[in-house]
Design a protein around this nucleic acid. Structure first.
Ligand code: MN
Ligand code: MN
Ligand code: ZN
Ligand code: ZN
Lengths: 140, 140
DNA sequence: TTTTTATATTAAAATGATTACAAATTAAAA
DNA sequence: TTTTAATTTGTAATCATTTTAATATAAAAA
């Protein structure tokens, strides 16, 4: 399971397994959405009232460093994290800010001209769509 | 010219033409890069030493509202603005943070499954690539 | 199991970016 | 030129994130 995997990855990296960290793993891998730091903090604080925001920031940063989660830059207002590291695009409703996954093909092949590709070592790509979801279109 | 166009757009919107605003237009349309608020502020402050950061923020926000510039969310560290509103993708070097334009085809057609498209009114799209530029690959 | 130690957590303060506000200034209409 | 509403400025407030140092603890060693 995903959580076991993260525990193993942390162990392998010589990092300690703490209840706070495990709770963060659990939250990330049992919610399908794209939580913000505050979403995660709110959940962890429910189980560990004394948890610090710093711990959440640190753990997320460590996970990004391990390549186990990704940061979504779809909006400057909020920073979202994605435990699904398979390449996929996202669409965000500009009103309710909900983010949905869209699985598409890799673009670096057919989108990047040779002239660009030969000057960069490509490390990643992000595709974001913006729109109004049906719920927000109908609402007053 | 672009600057005249912005002046006209502001006039049409019932907004006043101030020297600070014109200087911002000039900076945006004579630099090909993707400046940050601070880049713009630094330039304007060179010509109007008493200019306020607030003015820069306000003017940029107004221009975004008019659809004349776009905000690039390629990085959470910095907020970049793009006076080129034609659809195009970007590639950023993760080390030196330089951003380059890439002109590609519209993706909303072939990337968005029908199942998604029928639930959203699509308003925009952003495509970002991340990599190491040749300069940064060779440097120690 | 107990001890040890390096790492992690916490709380608080510092930093940095952005926004809010109110007073002073000014573009542009009359 | 006068008037007025919009804009600019300077300052303070807010919010997200990072830094720091003291305390607590996971996990290795004894
Ligand atoms: Mn996703
Ligand atoms: Mn561009
Ligand atoms: Zn919505
Ligand atoms: Zn570079």
């Amino acid at each position: 399971m995903q959580i076991e995997r993260m525990i193993r990855r942390f162990r392998e990296a010589g990092l300690k397994i703490t209840p706070q960290r495990v709770a963060i793993f659990e939250y990330l891998y049992t919610t399908s959405s794209h939580p913000t730091v505050d979403d995660i903090y709110a959940y962890i604080a429910g189980r560990f009232p004394s948890v610090s925001l710093t711990t959440v920031y640190n753990t997320l940063q460590t996970m990004v460093g391990l390549g186990e989660i990704e940061e979504i830059a779809i909006s400057h207002e909020r920073r979202n994290f994605d435990p699904d590291t398979r390449p996929h695009a996202h669409i965000m409703c500009v009103r309710c800010k909900r983010i949905e996954d869209i699985y598409t093909d890799d673009l670096s092949e057919n989108c990047l001209p040779e002239s660009v590709r030969k000057r960069y070592r490509i490390l990643g790509q992000r595709i974001y769509f913006y729109g109004l979801c049906s719920r927000c279109t109908t609402e007053k």
